[in-house]
């Protein structure tokens, strides 16, 4: 593939990559910076990259999760560890009908990067568990469990006791989506 192909691919792929990076970093600026960094590296290696979509997703998630590892897992909030992570965006109320106002980005910031990666790939990128497992180099079972844990934490962002049926339409732990697949 030529570098002209790169520009064409990058223009088409970047909107989705930006959304994924946004979930991974929970910060608009950091997400843009991360995507740019990944694209720069891909430009350099373009002629050796056979599956650019998969490569880009691996690069995004690796950048975030490896950074997290370097930090000795002292924090699990965000790539940039910004105090205002998620604060610059309007609240999102994903579950109409409940009185719980959930700022989704703020809640995502409380998840470990790996769980954010699983959610981003599963729900933003519409990837199957197997595909997510392949991209993150983990087992499908881990994808399932990480999805389950992430959703559970999103439903109980502050450890409050919520009625899961408000969110899932079901009651109790069995309603966790990831556990069913």
């Amino acid at each position: 593939m030529s570098r002209e192909d790169f520009s064409e691919w990058a223009h088409a792929a970047s909107p989705r990559l930006c959304r994924i990076a946004r979930v991974l970093t929970v910060d608009a600026d950091a997400a843009e910076d991360l995507v740019q960094d990944v694209l720069e590296k891909m430009y350099v290696r373009w002629h050796r990259i056979e599956e650019p979509d998969a490569y880009a997703r691996r690069a995004l998630t690796n950048a975030v999760t490896s950074r997290w590892r370097r930090q000795g897992r002292r924090q699990e909030t965000s790539w940039e560890a910004r105090e205002d992570a998620g604060a610059s965006h309007p609240p999102v109320y994903p579950h109409a009908g409940t009185e719980e106002r959930i700022d989704l980005l703020g809640d995502l910031a409380r998840l470990p990067p790996r769980q954010r990666a699983v959610l981003a790939l599963r729900y933003l990128d519409d990837r199957s568990e197997q595909e997510v497992a392949d991209l993150l180099d983990i087992s499908p079972g881990t994808v399932k469990s990480q999805t389950s844990k992430a959703l559970a934490r999103l439903r109980h962002p502050l450890g409050a006791s919520l009625d899961l049926s408000d969110i899932t339409g079901r009651s109790g732990p069995a309603g966790v989506r990831g556990a069913e697949k």
């Binding site: 520009s7 990058a10 223009h11 970047s14 909107p15 930006c18 959304r19 946004r22 979930v23 608009a28 843009e32 995507v35 740019q36 694209l39 965006h89 999102v92 994903p94 989704l104 980005l105 995502l108 959610l119 981003a120 729900y123 933003l124």
Partner: peptide, 16 residues
């Protein structure tokens, strides 16, 4: 929800 939460997108042309 995630699509909404990740809006707005940056200027893709400038980014690329």
């Amino acid at each position: 929800d995630l699509l909404t939460a990740t809006d707005p997108l940056p200027d893709i042309g400038a980014l690329v």
